[in-house]
Write a protein that binds this DNA or RNA. Sequence first.
RNA 1: CGGGCUGUGGCGCAGCUUGGUAGCGCGCUUCGUUUGGGACGAAGAUGUCGCAGGUUCAAAUCCUGUCAGCCCGACCA
Length: 622
Amino acid sequence: MSASTSCRYPHGVRCTNVRMSPDLTKELPVSTPAMRMSTLFLRTLREDPAEAELPSHRLLVRAGYIRRVAPGIYTWLPLGLKVLRNVERIVREEMDAIGAQELSFPALLPREPFEATGRWTEYGENIFRLKDRKGADYLLGPTHEEMFTLAVKDLYGSYKDLPLSIYQIQLKYRDEARPRAGLLRGREFVMKDSYSFDVDDAGLQASYDAHRGAYIKMFDRLGFDYVIVKATSGAMGGSASEEFLATAENGEDTYVRCTSCDYAANVEAVKVPSPPAIPYDGLPAAHVEDTPGTPTIDTLVDHLNAAFPRADRPWSASDTLKNVLVMVVHPGGRREPLAIGVPGDREIDEKRLGAQVEPAEIEAFDEADFAKHPALARGYMGPGALGEDAASGIRYLLDPRVVDGTDWVTGADSPDRHVIGLVAGRDFTADGTIEAAEVRDGDECPSCGQVLETARGIEMGHIFQLGRKYAEALGLKVLDQNGKLVTVTMGSYGVGVSRAVAAVAEGCHDEFGLVWPRELAPADVHVVATGKAEEVFAKAAELTDALAAQGVSVLYDDRRKVSPGVKFKDAELIGVPTIVIVGKGLEVGTIEIKDRATGVRREVPVDQIVDAVVSEVRGSAS
RNA sequence: CGGGCUGUGGCGCAGCUUGGUAGCGCGCUUCGUUUGGGACGAAGAUGUCGCAGGUUCAAAUCCUGUCAGCCCGACCA
């Protein structure tokens, strides 16, 4: 092999790539040819595409970054690809910085490893499955736990090999029931996933902490507002779980944060604090009353206030205990009824409930199910009939607020009758507690007791301690210091890379278009040549070249016969952070620099323009 | 999978109620004028009206079926 190789760039420019020392490489500015609007594969749209609802989706399509190919499947056009690559670069740099090593698994995977972990069936409809010509089953990887685990098993066998963190940035495929919101929930998407491998829990914690640190740096650089919240680990199982959410009104995830301390959690992970038990000496005995036509909480409260008015205050929904039945469907298909008691002023939050019963799923308790349980008086169910030891034999779990000594109005287990003053602990007990009631603004913070507020976000990253689930399923063991086989413990860390492009766009835009953070922008500078004077284009081209020579990436609008208005609109839509306008200022020897985000513009003498732009680009790059 | 809505040129839409040989804006092509905020004029090109049946002398339009897409919900890194 010779010491130099040559390649051809698409423009036909011949370049010689001489091997050089790393130090030498560093000294040379990296010069990228400017993108010219006259030839760039781009078409901006004046009108919003009908398919897009969210600002990020609308703008990415309008500005010519992406095109939809099928539901949840998008083409990256040149500008979009630049941004995607920038996100990848940031992620890669921060992963490399903690010593994680990049590799790349296939997207097309055989069935067997997923069979071993049970996910071929557990993942269900969300897997894209296909067969090869011989009829063998394959899938397009929705995540790669199995592949990472097997790769380590394949190569490593000793505690001396650990710890290890490996990652990939790769396409994932999920056959979502309903793809939506453009890049935010696609069926094909780019994800960075990494896994840490350690011999013991202390090692896992250290790997987790390293990733957490890397994620903080990464998300700081990505340039959107985010919060780190406590989370549940979803279908993967595991503990010590945190999510990085981009704060966004349109986000799909609801989280809470404390208005006083730093507590923040996904609603699914909120632990409702139990108030202290109340002594029930001296509380009046419970009594059953006729409450005709009161199958709902509203009708019950109205009836109570009419028929049994309280002396101190009116009855309210929070005085009642609402009992709700659901059907828990276990992975094997076994159906188990479950009764949940919550204060009557709260609904069951199905996401929270779902997180509690994972990996089982929740189905509605239907007519046929009621028919099988004659002990249940629909609309008038009470603790009397519920519980594993009671008439129905149905497991009964209570909201943590229903502590011993609290008293309730609740169903008396016969039609049109309720019991008043039923005291928890004295008159009834349950089989345990469950976090299933909705979380609301103003709820008590589990950490400091102050007030919680809810907000919405987009899940951008998730880190959690996966533990030994996959290592056990796939037999990943190493020899420890004593020559004994121990099962490796794993951490799992994901970042939605393509989703980040949309999330940033969702957070960084105005009425005119996108406003990219500098590190993600498809170019450092957007040079706009206005007018038709030959000298304007000559000067703009010269400036473009000079900037490129300085390592500044330039998008140069060199289109002739396109009016200045169109060029300005396009520049604002595309959202490169610095816009340089070469035009009528030339007559007095100036060129204009405009900041896309603030709209602030200033005239700079022609002979200082390169330095001014370079310092603009470098200066605000922090 | 439930609920709602929509399929008409590259994009955004009108036309459908009351059947009569398909239209507007943007974009595209050519020529000319214009060039600091999505210019103007003239001349053009581009359509199996989602698909399949049916009714009718005649269907974008009415009927039946079907497919696809979008939105809300369910579900979900």
